[in-house]
Amino acid sequence: MKLKQLGQVKRWMIGHAHQHPVELAVWNLVLTCWVMGWMGMPSAMLIEEWAALPACLTATLVPSLYASARLRLHRHGRLRCDWLTAL
Rank of each mutant, 00 (worst) to 15 (best):
E48W: 05
W12S: 03
R11W: 01
L87D: 11
T58W: 14
C33W: 05
V26D: 04
E49V: 07
R11T: 14
S64M: 14
H20D: 11
R70A: 11
P63C: 06
A52M: 15
A51Q: 11
L53N: 06
I47V: 15
V26T: 09
A55N: 11
R70F: 05
A44Q: 03
V30W: 04
M39G: 13
T58F: 13
G15D: 08
A25V: 03
R80K: 06
Q19N: 13
G77D: 06
M45P: 00
S64A: 15
H76N: 10
L6P: 00
L24Q: 11
W34H: 15
A51L: 02
P21F: 08
P21Y: 06
M36T: 05
P63K: 05
A59E: 01
W12Q: 02
H18F: 00
E23T: 15
M41S: 07
L31I: 10
M13D: 02
A69H: 13
K10N: 13
W50L: 13
P54I: 06
W83E: 15
P63E: 03
K4C: 00
M45N: 08
Q5A: 14
L29K: 12
T58M: 12
A25Q: 10
V26A: 02
W27F: 06
P21Q: 06
V9P: 02
L79G: 00
K4M: 01
A52N: 04
S68F: 09
W83G: 02
G7Q: 13
W38M: 13
W83M: 11
G40H: 01
W34P: 02
A86R: 06
E48Y: 06
H74V: 03
L87V: 04
A51N: 05
S43F: 12
